[in-house]
């Protein structure tokens, strides 16, 4: 009772990375709160899935397995979670801020009238003093996220409603095996007790999913472009440099919104979080929402024609100039010095 739940997303029979990252974070929060970590998995053909989850310190794995639960649709998943939470009364429930978690989370939180904070960049346990009602709350979940287009950082709490729910983007938390020998228990959910026939009115009639070819998250070098790149054509310069130095191309939200790059390259609070050994920021001004997703890069080079752009404050090297001049020179001198 009153444990910490992670609602796990299944991708091709495997637990999604974002869910494992949340279990890692969830384990440490559960240790702080001295409660159990529980994982909930909903889908089909989930035999043996628990072995992937124990590694991350999961005490209890709840499994709802039914042929009607693959592919995902909102209503049956929501019904299962809502009923299980009404029975189990978790204090915290976390899910990935993927299209899955962002579709499912709000539906569940509305049904339970609990609070939900989207796209948190940090989760901590802390106390809260409500001076107006002279009430003290112990061990609340601090849900920390940039807000207002990334111009401020807000700490959100849900003092009086349970579970305290939050979503977190892939890559924000680190995935770390807790123990190779950790063993929890499995509880199978009797799906028919939890869903109604009318939960299945929405039908997925066709599905084309591809393995993403772009892998910004795991790249060790990233050449990333912002609105300052100026055009889709200029973005080709970044691809040329990336090609030569063996990097992946990333983009800020402003560049994606402007149509210069595809969404799967977006870095920042509403994209992926990256920790490469080298991050080359081209024409990126450095809004908090972007910096939140790349500030842990081991080395940052900023190329910008505005020497006072905010990104220069976190950069290791600052090159003031036009990309059209600087990038071809980088390519030229990289080639020359590696010969």
């Amino acid at each position: 009772m009153n444990n910490l739940f992670v609602i796990c997303e299944i991708d091709n029979g495997k637990v999604a990375d974002v869910s494992l990252e949340l279990l890692t974070k969830g384990r440490s929060l559960a240790n702080d709160l001295k409660c159990d970590l529980e994982a909930l998995v909903i889908g089909h053909k989930l035999d043996g899935i628990e072995s992937q989850l124990y590694l991350y310190g999961t005490d209890t794995v709840w499994i709802a397995d039914d042929s009607r639960l693959d592919p995902y649709t909102t209503l049956p998943f929501s019904s299962i979670i809502v009923k299980l939470f009404q029975e189990q009364k978790p204090q915290i429930a976390l899910l990935g801020a993927s299209s899955y978690g962002r579709d499912l989370g709000p539906h569940v939180s509305s049904a339970l009238s609990s609070g939900l904070t989207a796209d948190c960049t940090s989760l901590e346990i802390g106390d809260h003093e409500d001076k107006k009602n002279s009430k003290t709350y112990k061990g609340l979940l601090y849900q920390i996220r940039p807000a207002f287009g990334g111009n401020i950082i807000a700490t959100i709490i849900n003092p009086d409603h349970r579970p305290q729910m939050a979503t977190v983007r892939e890559g924000v938390m680190k995935k770390e095996i807790y123990s190779e020998t950790y063993k929890g228990k499995v509880i199978k959910i009797d799906v028919n007790q939890y869903v109604k026939p009318e939960d299945f009115v929405v039908k997925v009639i066709e599905r084309h999913m591809e393995e993403s070819k772009v892998n910004v998250k795991n790249a060790s070098i990233i050449v990333s472009g912002g609105y300052g790149v100026g055009s889709k054509e200029n973005f080709d310069l970044l691809f040329q440099l990336a090609d030569v130095i063996g990097a992946e191309v990333g983009a800020s939200r402003a560049a994606v919104d402007a149509g210069y790059a595809n969404h799967d390259r977006q870095i920042g609070q509403t994209g992926v979080t990256v920790r490469p050994k080298l991050y080359i920021a081209c024409g990126i001004s450095g809004q908090i929402q972007h910096i939140a997703g790349m500030q842990e890069s081991a080395m940052i080079i900023s190329i910008n024609n505005d020497p006072s752009a905010p990104i220069t404050s976190i950069a290791d090297y600052v090159i003031t100039g036009n990309l059209e001049d600087v990038i071809p020179r980088m390519i030229k001198y990289y080639k020359k010095n590696t010969k």
Binding site: I153, I156, S302
Partner: peptide
């Protein structure tokens, strides 16, 4: 159900950035 506990402006730990000139010598050295 959700309340804002705190709002802050993030101040990044400013690093001492190395200035690289955009000319051939600067980029070559980098």
């Amino acid at each position: 159900p959700t309340k804002v506990k705190k709002i802050e402006n993030i101040v990044f730990q400013a690093k001492e950035a190395k200035i690289v000139t955009a000319d051939d010598t600067g980029i070559n050295d980098l």
